[in-house]
Design a binder for these strands. Structure first.
Lengths: 129, 129
DNA sequence: CTTGATTGTACAATGTACAGGTACAAGGAA
DNA sequence: TTCCTTGTACCTGTACATTGTACAATCAAG
């Protein structure tokens, strides 16, 4: 059971293949997947996630294009050595802007500012570990 | 210059009309736009943002459906008085879940956890005032 | 009151993205 | 060699974002 922390959330407004890409990239960045590790074949992971294997193949190809994976027929999917990508220079501003928009959306939905602030701090705490 | 803080970012995986909605809602919630204010005609704003005026019209309609705007032909776009609706009972969980998704997305993009945590705390601070 | 310009709306056409179906190609194993 | 495993190619259907075009409403000028 190579990838236990991987599930597709159909309620999320994000395509399945992109959810797979993000989840895998997170494992790659965090070190849960290391160079030399082998990922399951497209059909196996697809069966596990209940999507079509072409969807998994698209995710694998996207990560291969980023340099994370080495795809070869019959030999499976290998994690390549690669250092974490550079954060874009304006990352901080973009994160801040997106957060402002999200907060506005929640406030417009009537969620009390105190509750929003509590969740923001909890999310920040969760990052420390 | 009616809306200086409004630009479409084509690198973002979010449709243009939704970027317009989010940016305008931010101004509405924050008070930068108040009841009685007038927004530019769809064609003017579209020219400014370099999109088709129907794209702007879609954004205006979405905000009108939320109760923020009053659209009438020839009379332009007026900001309506609007009180916040009741927060749904599971608001807290939904906020927490959305934040987890966003944090994962940012980490997967290579943004350092410390930077994300800093922005989360800053956003929480910004809510106190 | 008529005319014309302004402004939002309706709707079809087009392009694009995603997911799935099917057939194929490569290449290691028996 | 032969066969099975595994990734790839290509096509289709569907949904949706964006645009082009025509139209409807309504205000102002005369």
């Amino acid at each position: 059971m190579p990838l236990p922390h991987l599930r597709i959330d159909p309620t999320r407004h994000q395509p399945a293949y992109r959810q797979i890409v993000d989840a895998l990239r997170l494992m790659l960045v965090s070190g849960a997947l290391r160079a030399g590790d082998r990922l399951p074949p497209v059909r196996d992971l697809a069966l596990d996630l209940r999507v079509h294997f072409n969807t998994v193949a698209a995710a694998y190809r996207a990560l291969a294009a980023e340099g994370w994976l080495d795809l070869r027929r019959r030999r499976g999917v290998l994690v390549r050595p690669r250092k974490a990508p550079e954060a874009p220079p304006d990352a901080s501003e973009r994160v801040a802007r997106r957060l402002r928009e999200l907060v506005a959306e929640w406030r417009a939905a009537g969620i009390p500012p105190g509750m929003i602030a509590r969740e923001l701090r909890a999310a920040a705490e969760g990052l420390k570990r």
